Simulated assay, not measured.
Amino acid sequence: MKQPRAANEVYRLPPPIFDARCKACWFTVGLLMLVVASFWSLDLQWAQFFSAEAAASMGRFVGEFFPPDTSPAFLHKVAVAAWETLAMSAVGTLLAAIAGLALALPAARLHAGDAARTRAPTRLLLNALRSVPELVWAALLLISAGLGPLAGTLALALHTSGVLGRLFAEAVENAPPGPAEALRAQGVGHGRVFLYATLPQVLPQLMSYTLYRWENNIRAAAVLGVVGAGGLGQLLAFHMGLFHMPKTATVLGAMLLLVAIVDAASLGARRWMTR
């Protein structure tokens, strides 16, 4: 039952949308001005983009994709390439999770009294790993690893190690300190404190980060083949370069199906872990 308001209760008005003393408000205004200036400085041909001629050209281009090539021989080739893309993303994510966890420990301040001398250089390394896109890593690794899925797998592993290492380090630093302090007060070493106190608390979060990055790596692995790293991307670049549009449509359909399956499986796994 709803309780009556007290006679002396003070009614407060909601805060104003903009306050001159609010730093976040000024930051939002500056960001909006930057966006408006960006649109104004770019030569965006909106009228040409939405013209009837552009729509007709796009319609003719899309029409060339139909019907897709569904011959058994080509479908088998696409299935093999899809499996290769899936394997590249899975192995690359697994290697990145292992490397990210190994780099997260020196990149994190484990307790209040930790000097964390390796924190700054390790975070600099993580920034360098993730600042280079997967396509650039793959292009560089093609020189040493050659054409094929090895270069793509290593490219995914290097870039994702930088991403997961930073996320893992933040999760370790934000873990509740109580259990770790209790073990540390009993004279337990740093390694056992991490294994028995910190890791069990952050493990669901680490797994969720890893699964989410696997979803992203599926998409990235499907594109890495454009530079010769194998998988569906290599088929896509080959047939699109030769204007084999029905075959290109089949490859694009396989990409969409693979991404949808992995997204659904990853989402189900994350929900199961958070129950």
Score class of each variant (00 low, 15 high):
residue 96 A to I: 06
residue 37 A to S: 13
residue 164 L to Q: 09
residue 150 L to S: 11
residue 86 L to M: 12
residue 19 D to K: 04
residue 75 L to V: 05
residue 42 L to F: 15
residue 50 F to E: 01
residue 74 F to K: 00
residue 117 R to V: 11
residue 38 S to G: 11
residue 97 A to L: 10
residue 203 L to W: 12
residue 30 G to Q: 09
residue 62 V to R: 05
residue 221 A to S: 12
residue 171 A to L: 04
residue 167 L to W: 07
residue 224 L to R: 06
residue 190 H to I: 12
residue 179 P to I: 03
residue 95 L to H: 03
residue 254 A to R: 06
residue 135 L to A: 05
residue 95 L to V: 05
residue 150 L to A: 12
residue 40 W to Y: 09
residue 151 A to M: 06
residue 187 G to S: 07
residue 31 L to T: 08
residue 181 E to H: 02
residue 8 N to Y: 07
residue 190 H to P: 14
residue 117 R to K: 02
residue 68 P to Q: 03
residue 85 T to L: 01
residue 196 Y to W: 11
residue 35 V to W: 14
residue 164 L to S: 09
residue 146 G to K: 05
residue 125 L to T: 05
residue 50 F to L: 08
residue 102 A to T: 02
residue 212 Y to N: 03
residue 226 V to G: 01
residue 204 P to Y: 07
residue 62 V to F: 15
residue 63 G to S: 10
residue 83 W to Q: 07
residue 219 R to Y: 03
residue 221 A to C: 02
residue 143 I to N: 06
residue 49 F to H: 10
residue 217 N to V: 02
residue 34 L to E: 09
residue 76 H to W: 15
residue 102 A to H: 00
residue 103 L to Q: 06
residue 33 M to L: 15
residue 46 W to Y: 11
residue 227 V to D: 09
residue 149 P to Y: 00
residue 259 V to D: 04
residue 8 N to C: 02
residue 128 A to K: 00
residue 180 A to P: 05
residue 265 A to L: 15
residue 16 P to H: 01
residue 203 L to I: 05
residue 28 T to H: 11
residue 39 F to I: 07
residue 242 L to F: 14
residue 269 A to G: 05
residue 273 M to Y: 08
residue 82 A to I: 07
residue 103 L to F: 12
residue 190 H to R: 15
residue 207 M to C: 13
residue 83 W to S: 06
residue 272 W to G: 12
residue 65 F to P: 02
residue 178 G to F: 00
residue 202 V to Y: 02
residue 28 T to K: 07
residue 28 T to D: 10
residue 9 E to V: 08
residue 223 V to E: 07
residue 93 T to N: 03
residue 185 A to P: 04
residue 85 T to Y: 04
residue 198 T to F: 08
residue 217 N to M: 02
residue 54 A to M: 14
residue 29 V to G: 06
residue 196 Y to L: 13
residue 186 Q to H: 10
residue 190 H to S: 14
residue 126 L to F: 04
residue 265 A to C: 15
residue 125 L to W: 07
residue 47 A to C: 03
residue 47 A to Q: 15
residue 29 V to I: 13
residue 21 R to C: 02
